[in-house]
Structures are given as C-alpha cells and as structure tokens.
Amino acid sequence: MKLSAAGTTVSKTRYTSRLRKDIMMNKYVYMMALPVIAFYLIFHYVPMGGLMIAFQDFNAFKGMFASPWVGLKHFNDFLTSPYAFRVIKNTLLINVYQILFGFPAPILLALLINEIRSHAFKRSIQTVSYMPHFISLVVICGMLVDFTASNGVINDIIALFGGERANLLMQKDLYRPIYILSGIWQEVGWGSIIYLATLSSVDPHLYEAASIDGAGRFKKLLHVTIPSLIPTIVILLIMRLGHIMSEGFEKVILIYNPLTYETADVISSYVYRRGLQEANYSFGAAVGLFNSTINFIILVAANALSRKFAKQSLW
C-alpha cells in the first residue's frame, strides 16, 4: 500500500509538472481558451444547480432553498398526463424524420458540390445554399404561413393544376412534412460545410491512384470520397442521436395551432405552455431533466454501438 501511494504521488507530481510546463509553452492558447471555458462554466454548469427545483414545488418568492420538496411528483404528473404519450410520440417522430431525411441532405449536397469543376459556379451554389441559415426563424415561419395560406403561392400552384385551395398549416397530416422540408431547406447548405471541409482534406493522390486503376468519377465517389466522409458522418450522427428527444419550441409555436396539436405538439411546446405560460417552473424543470436523461442514455448507447461495429466513436 505504501509503494502504491508513493507511486501515485510521483505520478501526480509528474503530471502537474508536465501541465505547468505545457501551460508556460502554450500560454496564449490557454488564454484564448479561457473565455470558452468561462462561457460553459457560467451558462452550462452553474445553472445545473437549478435542477433541484424539479424535485420541489418551487416558489419564486421563497427561492430554491425554502421551497417545499415534493420528490418525483412533477415527473409523475408529466408521465401520467393525457398528453404525455402524444408529445413524446410527436417529438420522437419529428426527430426520426429529421434524421432519415434531413441528416443525409447536407451529405448529398456536399457530394454534389464537390463534383462541380467550375470554382465560380461552386462558390455561387454554396452562397445560395448558405443564405437561408442566416434568415431569422421568425421570418422563415412568416414565409411558411404566407406560402401555405389558402391564397398563398403553394395553393396558387395547386389551383393551377385543378386542386382545391386550403390552408395547409391547418391540416394536421401536412404539418410534419412542412416542418421537415422547411428545416431541410433552411439548414442543408450550412450543414454541408463540415463535409466540404472534410472533402477538402482528402489526399489528392488517392484520386490519382484511382484514375490509374481505371476508376471513373462514380467509382471514385464510391471508393474514395464516401469512405473519407464516413468518420465525420458517424460522429455527427452520434451527436444527432443525442438530441432525439429534444426539439426546440420556437419554430413549433410559431407555426402550430390548436387544429394541429395532435401531430405538432412536442415536449418543449407542451412545457412552454405548462411551465412558462402557467408559471409552473418545477414542472418545466422536471420534464427538461427527463428529456436530458433520455438523451444522455441514447447518446451513450449510440456511441457504444458505433465503437463496437463502426470502430468510430466520440470517446
């Protein structure tokens, strides 16, 4: 035991010495990292202490330390509410559809842009595809409301081919397709950046070797380009799976309405109504903690499966 303790002490001393030396050698890098570290500490880790209100009947006048404890009451209220199944199902379905249709979209766009030989045309395509990302979400939702209105441009096209006019956002069966497709349009260009950056780092000698072996553009795409993207795709997919139970309420509450609650109401929009509009902060914190726990479990499971079968993982 004494030898083990001594060895541990020596190891800690060596590590401290190496860390001090590294800080001195790279002090400017550490100085640049300080604002980022401070941001995460202040806005991500310190607020985690507020999770305790999920187990309280929180009263803003009494504060966290004087509010009465109620244990798992708010978790039970959410899981036994008549809306729990609906909002969990809608959240999962929207995220699954986004993964099935939205996740491959920037990959395909990056592959197509990478095949363009004209640099001027390539830059033009990139600029046009990036632009929707910088449009305010409020503006995007306003455009959706106008375009899908009964007198909007989409209904003009439908009427041109003999169809009947109808407010598309008032139809519950069309809500998810509109939500997913508009999200793809807005983010596909921005999402392709990381894949284009990965493709720009592919060794040109691999393409030269493939050409010598008689491979055409399609064969190069299959055997050089796509395999080069696999590690990035796997990492981003794992990270995306870690948010499968989360869906921001901003876009949802801007375009949904009582007629589409059945397919549009997600966990975050339900919590917005219960937690913020009704000032039930403990309920909102409880559902947020439930969400984060499920997401964490899925993230760990996805990472483990990826490490086992794809030999790629976050850790």
Rank of each mutant, 00 (worst) to 15 (best):
N167T: 13
S150D: 05
I294L: 11
M239W: 01
P177E: 08
L168F: 04
L41E: 06
A210H: 04
N59F: 03
K62H: 10
N280S: 11
L72Q: 02
F147E: 04
Q312Y: 01
D146Y: 15
R123Y: 04
F75H: 03
R117G: 02
L276Y: 04
L305N: 02
A301C: 10
I94H: 08
E247R: 09
D57H: 09
H119R: 15
P258H: 02
N155W: 01
P132C: 06
E187C: 08
M1L: 09
A304W: 10
L111I: 12
T260E: 11
G49I: 14
V138A: 15
N295M: 03
V287T: 01
L236Y: 12
D22C: 06
N114H: 05
Y83R: 11
I226Y: 00
P231Y: 01
I53S: 03
Y30C: 06
L3G: 05
F283T: 07
S201C: 08
F85C: 01
L276N: 05
E164D: 10
P177A: 03
R274N: 14
D77H: 07
M48G: 07
V188K: 00
C141D: 09
I255H: 07
I180E: 11
I297W: 00
I116L: 14
L222S: 12
S124D: 03
Q98N: 15
A110F: 01
S81L: 06
F85H: 07
R274P: 04
I233T: 01
I158D: 00
S211H: 10
V128P: 07
W185L: 10
R273W: 05
I135W: 13
Q186W: 11
A149Y: 10
A110T: 02
L160T: 00
P231N: 00
I212A: 03
A159G: 01
K62R: 14
L111N: 02
A6N: 11
I94E: 07
L276D: 04
L196H: 06
P204N: 09
A120L: 12
N303I: 05
P35V: 04
L181N: 03
A210I: 10
G7L: 13
V138E: 05
I226T: 01
F103N: 00
I178F: 10
A84N: 04
I99L: 10
I99V: 12
L241E: 00
S124L: 14
Y272W: 07
V139S: 14
P68E: 15
N280Y: 08
Y195H: 02
V224Y: 02
I53H: 03
E278W: 11
P35F: 03
I116N: 05
L79A: 08
N90T: 06
Y179R: 13
L314A: 02
V128E: 04
Y40H: 13
T293K: 05
V128W: 09
H44F: 13
N95W: 05
N167Q: 07
V224D: 10
E115K: 09
I298N: 08
I178S: 02
S11T: 07
V10A: 15
